[in-house]
Amino acid sequence: MIEINPARPRAPRSDGEQSRERLLHAALALFAQQGFAKTSTREIAEAAGTNLAAIKYYFGDKAGLYRAVFFELQSAPEEEIERFGGAQLSLRDALRGLYIGLIEPLKQGELTTLCMKLHMREMLEPTGLWAEEIDKGIRPMHEALVEVLCRHVGVARPDDEIQRLAVCVAALGVHLHVGRDVTDALAPNLNATPDALDRWLERLVMYAEAMVAAEVQRRRSTG
């Protein structure tokens, strides 16, 4: 799952912090559009209004900058798991926590779009970071969701059907990112405003609850 850090109030940044952030955002736009291999550090420095020495100072080299862009602009899996993985949470609250992490970034507009493009490009033109993202980011979140579903379906250990259910529950939210341009073309009102995105949150929780209920019923009927 791909989750971009929700916007948070920040204290005024120093000149160094501002320079580093400009480099991150300039690099994000160029890497997302052109890929790692076709993007030069000179292009990034020019787009950020800084110099090549700043890239070396803050990130070491182009690979270090790419890595920072890929990982720093998304929330840590631990933060996301804390939002939905608590054993004390009801199913509805757990699902709300899961989907908040997917809905809120959509309100950031172009930043989230560029991050999604970067991840898609990394899958097509791998540098090795996508495998790391799966192992250290997506896998822990999937396993936490599986635990939630086991608890609420009433099984001690996950089987293939719980794994399948977890993929489907997550897919409801992930598709809003992966298929954003398609949704905007087919039904633009669904993503047009923050209120419309909030409505997605309520609907995704409702749909996911129905999926979990269907799996519980399937298990009862098959004994």
Rank of each mutant, 00 (worst) to 15 (best):
R199C: 14
A27Y: 02
N5P: 00
D195N: 09
L172D: 08
R164H: 11
L98N: 06
R157I: 12
A144C: 01
S40P: 10
N51T: 14
E72M: 12
A87S: 12
G137A: 11
L190W: 04
M116H: 08
L65S: 01
S19I: 15
A214W: 06
L102F: 04
I2F: 05
A144H: 00
V205Q: 03
F84L: 10
G137R: 11
S221Y: 14
Q74F: 07
L124H: 13
T50F: 12
L24T: 02
H25I: 11
I134N: 12
I162P: 00
L118G: 01
T193S: 10
H142S: 14
R139G: 05
N51I: 15
S19P: 11
A94V: 09
Q88S: 15
Y57T: 14
D15G: 04
C168K: 11
G109T: 04
L204A: 01
A187G: 00
R92E: 15
R220N: 13
L89W: 07
A11Q: 15
E143H: 08
Q34G: 06
D184P: 00
M120Y: 04
R151G: 10
A37Q: 14
A214G: 05
L145D: 08
A37L: 15
S221P: 02
K38W: 13
L23P: 08
T183G: 00
R219P: 10
R151L: 05
E17C: 11
Y207F: 14
L102E: 08
R121F: 01
M123K: 02
L102W: 06
A45E: 07
C115I: 06
I2L: 14
G137F: 07
L98E: 08
I4R: 02
A87H: 12
A45M: 12
I162W: 02
G97D: 01
T41K: 11
A171V: 07
S75M: 13
V182S: 00
L197W: 03
K107Q: 03
V216L: 11
H152T: 00
R10D: 15
W200K: 06
E147P: 08
I4N: 01
G16W: 10
W200E: 05
H175F: 07
E17H: 07
E125C: 11
P12D: 09
E125I: 00
S221M: 15
G101P: 02
P140M: 09
H25S: 04
G60L: 03
D159K: 05
L24N: 07
L102C: 03
Q108N: 10
M1K: 03
L124Y: 09
L197Y: 07
E147H: 14
